[in-house]
Design a protein around this nucleic acid. Structure first.
Length: 426
RNA sequence: GGAGGAGUGUCGGAGUGGUCUAACGAAACAGUCUUGAAAACUGUCACCUGGGAAACCGGGUCGUGAGUUCGAAUCUCACCUCCUCCGCCA
């Protein structure tokens, strides 16, 4: 959500931003609704002022007739007021629905484009492995080594279901341990937070996943939702709070299971561990003061944390700046980090790093008192720290050996009993 | 699942139909005192919103929403959250 005053004063910016994001949004319709809102507010407030004034006089009135007349007048006023308030409710409904649809304005540096095909590479790191044979994909590798079972996965959990087995499961746990240790040792200002996945609707409205993303969310019979990311509960942790400026920026490393319906992606990545209904994610989340410069600096920090992590795992990756059409409603700018997938001879997304300015905190009502004594909405940012089991794809594929075994990344070995390989026949 | 109680500003907390303009306290900020700090004292101090250059003036907000009333923090209903007791389970 944006400030209506800002919207009114910058409607060209809003329109341009929506266009850059390839979103349809009619600013003029909002302005019109806001005009109505303002006009009606004026009428209603005028009547209320009259009512308040009478209310103040009434108790001390001695003249019975005069009092009776005033009461009659007030009854009439009340009827009119009720009619206007009814109208006001209708206008507000329209107004609020439109307000929830206003896209945040993308940063100047966001490249033009329609889809992820138009994202622009910022930099690449690491050596892509050279194979003397056609590299196998993770499905084949993992099934051969009995690290995963997709057939029974589908039988038990339905489409996109999976089991992780043996060292496959062990490596998932190893990665979790690794991430936690990595942050605890090197980024200790990111505090661990284990968050709920089963959340209320307001949390998803607040983070900007609703009202637009209804189809991609699982919903329970109690009208709760399964969140697709720990960001939702984490951001909501500070909903309706006034943060102490001294504590900013607040940095969290949040963990949760994640659930996504993946509606509309039925033909994409139907096999393997890439696109799952159920997975696990460590998410970096930051609140900072309302400053564009601070947001930008922390955005880069979130990105560099992940680069460090991937470098420790020795995975070749590149960073792309997402184009306007690939940005979410609230995002100002986004980097995706994509790790090399030898079997497909291309990069596959593993991390998504974005900042929102006050878009989320305004919806969630997360504020702090600034030095000038004014309440301000905080800024928010987030980035994946590590999502499993997706990253297993790239670990397995990049570290595969000709005999079908897998070399375990050095940093993970201590969490996997010290072994150097999975499935190496000595 | 059953019974009862509660939700007030940054925090604690008073207020049970009309000067509520929400008391009081804490925190915070400014000042006095002090070599400095603390303490003490003095002052400022809820938020959102409309108008205005400002002083100031208007409206709203007491968990959320609806209702009763000329008038609601206060009465009624529904919902949300928390607490206590009982039951059930671990």
């Amino acid at each position: 959500m944006l400030d209506i005053k800002f919207i009114r004063e910058n409607k060209e910016l809003i329109a341009e931003g929506a266009k850059k994001k390839h979103l349809k949004f009619d600013v003029e319709a909002l302005i019109k609704a806001d005009d109505e809102r303002k006009a009606l507010t004026l009428l209603v407030e005028e009547k209320r002022a009259k009512q308040n004034e009478a209310s103040k006089r009434l108790p001390s009135m001695k003249d019975a007739l005069e009092k009776k007349n005033l009461l009659e007048d007030m009854k009439l006023l009340k009827d009119e007021l009720q009619k206007e308030e009814e109208k006001m409710k209708e206008v507000m409904k329209v107004w609020q629905a439109l307000m929830l649809q206003v896209p945040n304005i993308p940063d100047m540096s966001v490249p033009e484009g329609d889809s992820d095909a138009d994202n622009v590479e910022v930099r690449a790191w690491g050596e892509k492995p050279n194979f003397t044979y056609r590299p196998k994909d993770h499905i084949e590798l993992m099934e051969k080594l009995d690290l995963a079972d997709f057939e029974i996965g589908a039988k038990v959990a339905g489409f996109r279901g999976y089991f992780l087995k043996n060292e496959g499961a062990l490596m998932e746990f190893a990665l979790w341990q690794f991430v936690m240790d990595f942050f605890r040792e090197k980024k200790s200002e990111y505090k661990l937070l284990f968050v709920p996945s089963l959340v209320r609707r307001e949390t998803l409205l607040g983070t900007g996943y609703l009202p637009q993303g209804e189809d991609d969310l699982y919903k329970t019979q109690d009208n709760d939702y399964l969140a697709g990311t720990a960001e939702v509960a984490t951001m909501s942790y500070n909903a309706d709070k006034v943060l102490d400026k001294k504590d900013l920026p607040i940095k969290k490393l949040a963990f949760s299971p994640c659930f996504r319906r993946e509606a509309g992606s039925y033909s994409k990545d139907v096999k393997g561990l890439y696109r799952l209904h159920e997975f696990y994610k460590f998410e970096q989340v930051i609140w900072c003061e309302a400053s564009h410069e601070k947001s930008v600096a922390l955005h880069e920090e979130l990105l560099s944390n992940v680069e460090e992590l991937l470098q420790a795992l020795n995975l070749p990756y590149h960073v792309v700046a997402n184009c306007g059409g690939d940005l979410g409603l609230g995002q100002v700018k986004k980097y995706d980090v994509e790790v090399w997938r030898p079997s497909q001879n291309k990069y596959g997304e593993t991390h998504s790093c974005s900042y929102f300015h006050d878009f989320q905190c305004r919806r969630l009502n997360t504020r702090y008192k600034d030095d000038d004594g004014k309440m301000k909405f905080a800024h928010s940012l987030n980035n994946t720290a590590l999502a499993t089991p997706r990253i297993l794809i790239q670990i397995v594929e990049n570290n595969q050996q000709e005999d079908g075994s897998i070399k375990i990344p050095e940093v993970l070995r201590k969490y996997m009993g010290g072994a150097e390989y999975i499935g190496k026949k000595s």
